[in-house]
């Protein structure tokens, strides 16, 4: 059996659903180069006008945090509740602040 598809790199697809919103990750696909990846992303992920702009990024270019580092990576923010506005009580008569 042939294994040609392994030679087609993997790309991550990000779609801006409408002007004013951010690009959001919506999936991945295999393509030979960036131009083909864009065209395929158009066909695979925006058949019903789901987007006005597409980014494609080689999957190998993405650096990800690892789940087993979740605690040391994200927990330091957990005890800093003073970073939230609700930490501070303000007298009612002040009104909205």
């Amino acid at each position: 059996m042939t294994t040609e598809l392994t030679d087609w790199p993997l790309w991550e697809v990000f779609v801006r659903s409408k002007q004013g919103l951010e690009h959001k990750h919506c999936g991945s696909l295999h393509a030979v180069d960036a131009a083909q990846a864009l065209q395929m992303a158009r066909d695979v992920y925006t058949r019903r006008q789901e987007g006005v702009s597409i980014w494609v990024v080689p999957s190998s270019a993405i650096t990800a945090s690892a789940p087993e580092n979740k605690a040391e990576f994200f927990d330091p923010a957990g005890d800093k509740i003073y970073r939230h506005p609700t930490f501070y009580s303000i007298p009612d008569e002040v009104g909205h602040m």
Binding site: L10, C26, S28, S59, S60, I62, S65, A66
Partner: peptide, 26 residues
Amino acid sequence: MYTQALDIPEGSGDAATGLKHSGQVP
């Protein structure tokens, strides 16, 4: 969707960050 590249231990991303990777849990 959602890439397997992020799962491959030899990924360049891991080398760059020095983060240890899942999959080979002691």
